[in-house]
């Protein structure tokens, strides 16, 4: 369970460029929740993710993961229980290392990096099996440097790396936005499969409104650093893209950006 209590972040404090990126956000994510997050540019979606993952230090408030206060933990310390995907497919993998080396690093998540051999033989079978589940043929290219893979392949591999040791929380920051529509659909399909199979608590930012309704069990809408409203249960089930747009402009004070409409 992830709990945010009155979390605030202000950028460029005390200058003319001061911007409240997160303004008193409180949010509870129950175990097994798959929450989709939408909002216009600058609404604070990515800042929310970065606050949870520890990339940004928060100015005010507290963050709990499974009743443990993680507010003061550093990014790499939180990464023991939080898996993460970025929008940029190049960010999640080490390009000059092979597929199996990348997976080996991910597989020792949360453990001390010791002087034990990096990739054990028995792990290789597990890696091959998991890679074949992606259905991209990567299981036959385990010794290929990741830099030679396509963006979609790298993002699928990052997804596997983020979940190969089941995390308590998975953060997806528009992880399909940089991919072509067909690849994006494929990566989304893999995402849903992995999340469902392992019952991983997930937060997913998306620009795609229909995706936001199609996946997960709750949708939250951010506007100007605040939680504008949330959708769940019956109301969410019966919601259409047009309905959500209308609800948004009625509730959130600013209109959806063109980019969201186009997606």
């Amino acid at each position: 369970m992830l709990k945010l209590e009155n979390v605030s972040i202000t950028f460029n404090k005390g200058t003319v460029n001061e911007k409240k990126a997160l303004d008193n956000v409180s949010l509870t994510v129950e175990d097994g929740d798959f929450i989709t997050v939408i909002g216009s540019n600058g609404a604070g979606k990515s800042t929310l993710m970065n606050a949870v993952s520890g990339t940004y230090e928060i100015d005010k408030g507290k963050i709990f993961l499974d009743d443990k206060n993680i507010t003061r933990l550093k990014e790499y310390q939180r990464a023991r229980f939080i898996g993460r995907l970025f929008q940029d497919p190049l960010r999640g993998t080490a390009p000059n290392m092979t597929i199996e080396e990348n997976l080996g690093l991910a597989y020792s998540r949360g453990k001390r990096r010791s002087l034990n051999i990096g990739i054990k033989r028995k792990d290789l079978n597990l890696f091959r099996e998991k890679l074949s589940e992606l259905g991209l043929g990567l299981e036959d290219r385990m010794k290929t440097p990741v830099g030679l893979l396509s963006g979609g392949q790298r993002q699928a591999l990052t997804l596997l790396m983020a979940t190969i040791v089941t995390p308590k929380l998975l953060l997806l920051d528009e992880h399909t936005a940089a991919l072509d529509p067909k690849t994006a659909a494929k990566v989304m399909e893999i995402t849903e499969k992995i999340v469902k199979e392992n019952n991983i608590t997930t937060l997913m930012i998306t620009h795609n409104v229909s995706n936001a309704l199609a996946y997960g069990n709750r949708t939250i809408v951010l506007s100007q650093g605040r939680l504008a409203f949330a959708l769940e249960g019956e109301q969410r089930k019966n919601m259409t893209v047009e309905g959500l747009m209308k609800l948004y402009s009625d509730n959130a004070g600013d209109a959806f950006t063109d980019k969201m409409l186009l997606d």
Binding site: Y76, A79, R91, T93, N96, R109
Partner: peptide, 13 residues
């Protein structure tokens, strides 16, 4: 190679 990935993999870079 990729510091983002390292920190996201719980390694103290």
């Amino acid at each position: 190679d990729n510091e983002y990935m390292v920190r996201a993999s719980s390694i103290n870079s």
